[in-house]
Structure formats: structure tokens, C-alpha cells
Amino acid sequence: MKKITDFILNIGKMDRRWIFLIIALVVLLPLYFPIGLPIRPTDSTQTAYDAMDKLPPGSKVLVSFEYGPSTKPEIHPMTYAVLRHLFKKEQKVYITCLWPDGQFMAEEAIDEIAIGEFNLNEGEDYVLLGFRPGNEAVVKGIVSNMRKLYSTDARGTLTDNIPMMKGVNKLADFDFIFTASAGYPGTVEWVQYGADPTGIPMSTGVTSIQVNEVMPYVQSGQVKGILAGMPGAAEYEALVGVPGIGTSGMDAQSIAHLVIVLFIVFGNAAYFIERQRQKKY
């Protein structure tokens, strides 16, 4: 017994750099040797998928990019999967960005999905309206009169000359909103100033860290489902039927979680054993 407690105590005293190395290895190995753990969509992902799936073809969907390179691994697979779904269903996609770096995330997604996979035409099937500074004031601007805010798109083309902008003047002219958000401004601001005042149905994909903040809006029905971090992306990829980075990262994610849980258990056990020994002597 003493040997086991000593072993646990040694783990508790381990240099943090060994922990970093172990985490690096358990993340790296499944990326080289995938196990293929099953992915089952959760209720919230299924709700988001259903909400977008039942839109009739030709619906106007506003997709907002509120993330940058720092959160790309979590959100980018979601936007790829959602855009694939929307373009497959022949929806018209209008892209806005509340984050400046959201614009080049959007450009990358357009290049790969809209042009690379679906060979769509800019201005007819999708439009990149781009970034405007002002956080929630931008959402308010889109709600009241988006033409004032977006007199040109991200390429400098006058919105009056863009065919798919005909009849689109404010948020109420859209059929659905999807926000890919990594923080402020993002999903919360779209709920507060966009979806709630206009009643336009909205769904979202967020970073893991934001899930707890956004979940109350999902529970109350203000947001139709949520894609929660990389697992949410993997689940959406499974529903769309095209596996991507989200799916390939899930093995590493699951094994890393298991190892972290073990570290937490050992850390706590070491703490209690040490406390017990201090009481004794």
C-alpha cells in the first residue's frame, strides 16, 4: 500500500514540463494513428442542423464570422460544414464579420467551399459583405438599415450592383442567422440586438469556453441549437456527411481528456494522501 501511495505522491510532485510532454504525445499520436471513435450528434447539434435543413431552397441566410486564427481550429471546421450544408441546399449566403480577422477566415472558407467545392458565383449565390467596426452597434445597424453600413461589399463592389442584395435592406429580410463566434462581439450580441428584437431564427457555433455563456439562450429557445467547440463541428460534419478537421481531431480530443482526468484524479489523491500524512506526524 505504501508503495502505491508513494507512487501517487511522486506523480503529484512531477515537474509540470513532463505533463506538457505527455499531453503533447497523447494529442499527437492519435493524429498519426487514428482510432476512429464513433461520433454521435448531440441534441443541440441536431437542433441546429434541423433548423437549417428545413429552410426552403433560396432562403437568405446571414452567416457572421466572429473569430480569428487563435480560435480557428475550433470554429473553422464548423463554418466549413455549415457552408457545405447551406450551399448543398441552394441557400443564398450573406457573410458579415464583427471581427476584423473574421474577414480573412471568411475569405478562406469561401475559396475552399463556395468556389473550390461548389463552383458558385459571387454576388449571385453568396456575398462577402465583410468587416465593419462597431461591435453591437453594427448588429443594430444591420437591424435598422444595413445599406447604410454596407454601401459596398468586402471587394469594394457597390451593394446596389450586387444581384442578390436586391430587396435586402435590413435583418428582417433574412430567413435565418448563423453566427460562428469566439467571444465578444459575437453570439450574445446577435441574440440581444439581432435575433430577439426581429424574431429571425438563429443558430450558432461557438468555442468550448463560450458554451456555458450561450447555453441559457439555447435552453430558452432564443437560439436554435448550438455547435459546441470541436466536438460540435465533428457532429455537424457527421450530419452533413463530409468528415473534416473536426472529425479527425476527435480521437486526440477524447484521449487527451482521459489523460487530463487521470492527472486530476492523481493530483487530488496526492493532495489527500499528503494531508493525511501531515495530520499523522
Binding site: A24, L31, T207, S208, N212, G249, A256, I260
Partner: peptide, 26 residues
Amino acid sequence: ISFGASFGFAVMGRISLLIGRFVDLI
């Protein structure tokens, strides 16, 4: 329980970012 869920999600987020960088490095 709510803080625990937040911590769990935070860990999940960090691991996702690590995966993203490793995918690029590979």
C-alpha cells in the same frame, strides 16, 4: 457544477487549439 462544466469546456477548447496547431505542424 456550473464552474466545473466551464472548466471542462475550457480544457476542451485548449486541447482543440493544440490539435489545430499540431495538424498544421504535421
